[in-house]
Design a protein around this nucleic acid. Sequence first.
DNA 1: CTGTAAATTTACGTGAACGTCAAATCCGGG
DNA 2: CCCGGATTTGACGTTCACGTAAATTTACAG
Lengths: 119, 119
Amino acid sequence: MFDVTPRTLRYYEEVGLLQPERRGAQRLYTDRDRVRIQLILRGRRIGFSLPEIAEMLELYDADPTEITQLRDVLRRGDRKLAEIDQQIRELQAIREELLELRDRLQRTLDEKLKGRDLS
Amino acid sequence: MFDVTPRTLRYYEEVGLLQPERRGAQRLYTDRDRVRIQLILRGRRIGFSLPEIAEMLELYDADPTEITQLRDVLRRGDRKLAEIDQQIRELQAIREELLELRDRLQRTLDEKLKGRDLS
DNA sequence: CTGTAAATTTACGTGAACGTCAAATCCGGG
DNA sequence: CCCGGATTTGACGTTCACGTAAATTTACAG
């Protein structure tokens, strides 16, 4: 369904990212599990480690009854947001550089083509 | 200087990302090397593998004399750009979700505080 | 109940990206 | 030239995120 092997799902369970129900010995992945799997895979695609992803998932399923706990979750969420903003900035920096490089190459290509026309 | 161990630099050299000069047996890291090191580290921070980073570095130091080669480099650069744009989009998606979550938590915190005031 | 296909468990293997440690080598100062 | 500290060179170890193969166990049609 998500192009993921059973081994991977069991590993995610092993490290605490998933807790599928059991019907006897078989694992039952609920909608909640499927959502979490998608979040995990997206996190992996952008290079987060499984512990980092775990931090983010904890933000989601935390049901903080205590005000101090709630403040704590908010603080951790803000830290994560700052990290992500930083990462976006780094990606945009690389993007800018690649665009510059692209323009340079494009110009030298244009020159070479013009030179060829004149010959 | 960049908070990186000698072992790491030698490993990057081993896999072809760096080619520092030698004064006798000692490695001499030039400005060019230092720039490359920064690019490598930035790539690592945002989760690129060393082979992926190698691809990008090749784009920089390619000096394509042949027009076909130049077109090829341009094409590879565009592919990389597309990947990076995709990654930025995924990060922004996560960012949006975290912001939503943050707002929800903030609101329940506000309610709890209001409830406490009234008691 | 029984065979068998599927799911689980257990355990070892793997590639990437370094860490770590010892041995050898180099290199500048006296 | 000699020596002590720095650098280099293997070589093996480690962690993460799974892959893989074998042995069990389970589930279910007939």
